[in-house]
Amino acid sequence: MFKRLMMVALLVIAPLSAATAADQTNPYKLMDEAAQKTFDRLKNEQPQIRANPDYLRTIVDQELLPYVQVKYAGALVLGQYYKSATPAQREAYFAAFREYLKQAYGQALAMYHGQTYQIAPEQPLGDKTIVPIRVTIIDPNGRPPVRLDFQWRKNSQTGNWQAYDMIAEGVSMITTKQNEWGTLLRTKGIDGLTAQLKSISQQKITLEEKK
């Protein structure tokens, strides 16, 4: 169930391209415009997507990853294993993690069937560096609404905000991946996880038929 919630949630996290980005210092504006741009692209490019579902990787690479804190999220997933990894191991892992996100997020976007969304009203940021933004996803086919909290983090150097995690039903996506990959990290280390991520990233994206 959580895996499905995570995939549905990713439908609204794909941010804007650099040329049309919203105010990078306001995570609420980023979330709002990102959702609108993403849904528009999914709707307008269905012919290309249906002809070649792996085209979704391109959308992810162009529109999402430049505005997601990939390395920060990847380091959180590694936890204690990050500090013990060599620079070469980290570089290989982050490259594999990025390719994994292209496949995983692309597969999530393949679930698009006309969903709509509501974003919580903007709250004062103050001096906060981590801000959760509640998004409610509404399914046109009558499924119950899904309420999610996207975690946005302020870059201490640039002042810009980027998304790095999502919490559904009190469970963090980062925590879920830590639990899912924990045994592999304990037995085969970061190299074993890197190899698995490379394998997963090679899987073809498949479209979910409308139910």
Rank of each mutant, 00 (worst) to 15 (best):
F2G: 05
M6T: 02
M7I: 08
A9H: 00
L10V: 04
L11E: 01
L11R: 08
L11M: 11
L11Q: 05
L11H: 01
V12G: 07
I13D: 02
I13V: 02
L16D: 03
L16Q: 02
S17L: 03
S17G: 10
A19I: 00
A19V: 10
T20S: 04
T20R: 03
A21E: 08
A22I: 00
A22K: 14
D23Q: 15
N26W: 10
N26I: 00
L30V: 05
D32K: 10
E33W: 12
E33Q: 15
E33T: 14
T38Y: 11
R41N: 01
L42G: 12
K43W: 15
E45V: 03
E45F: 10
Q46V: 08
Q46C: 11
Q46N: 06
P47R: 07
I49H: 12
R50Q: 05
R50A: 06
A51W: 03
N52R: 04
D54H: 12
D54Q: 15
T58K: 12
E63N: 15
L64Q: 03
L64V: 10
P66C: 07
P66W: 04
V68Y: 09
V70Q: 02
V70M: 11
K71W: 09
Y72L: 11
Y72K: 03
G74S: 02
L76V: 06
L76I: 14
V77F: 11
V77H: 00
V77C: 11
L78G: 01
G79K: 02
G79L: 07
Y81S: 02
Y81C: 13
Y82M: 03
Y82L: 02
K83N: 02
T86W: 08
T86P: 02
P87A: 12
P87I: 15
P87K: 05
E91K: 01
F94P: 03
F94H: 07
A96K: 00
A96D: 06
E99A: 13
Y100M: 14
Y100S: 03
L101M: 15
K102M: 00
K102A: 15
K102Q: 05
Q103S: 14
G106L: 04
Q107Y: 02
M111D: 13
M111E: 01
Y112S: 10
H113Y: 12
Q115L: 03
Q115R: 09
Q115I: 01
T116E: 10
I119L: 04
A120Q: 03
P121I: 03
Q123E: 05
Q123D: 09
P124Y: 06
L125K: 15
L125Y: 14
D127K: 01
K128E: 07
K128T: 15
I130F: 03
I130R: 13
I133E: 07
I133H: 06
R134G: 07
V135I: 11
T136G: 05
I138V: 05
N141P: 08
G142K: 07
R143N: 01
R143P: 06
R143S: 11
P145K: 06
P145T: 04
P145E: 12
V146K: 13
V146I: 03
R147I: 02
D149R: 05
D149P: 06
F150Q: 01
Q151F: 01
W152D: 01
N155P: 10
S156G: 09
Q157D: 11
Q157E: 10
Q157W: 12
T158D: 13
G159H: 03
W161R: 10
Q162K: 11
Q162F: 08
Y164H: 04
D165N: 13
M166S: 09
M166N: 13
M166D: 11
I167T: 04
A168Y: 11
E169R: 07
E169S: 10
G170E: 03
V171A: 11
M173D: 13
M173N: 12
M173G: 04
I174M: 12
T175V: 08
Q178T: 15
N179E: 11
N179G: 14
G182A: 09
G182W: 11
G182I: 15
T183M: 01
T183H: 14
T183Y: 13
L184S: 08
R186H: 11
R186N: 00
T187I: 09
G189H: 00
G189V: 09
G189W: 14
I190L: 06
D191L: 11
D191P: 06
D191F: 11
L193E: 07
L193I: 06
T194R: 12
A195W: 03
A195F: 03
A195H: 12
S199M: 00
S201F: 14
Q203V: 02
K204M: 13
I205A: 14
I205T: 10
L207M: 06
L207S: 01
E208I: 03
E209G: 10
K210H: 14
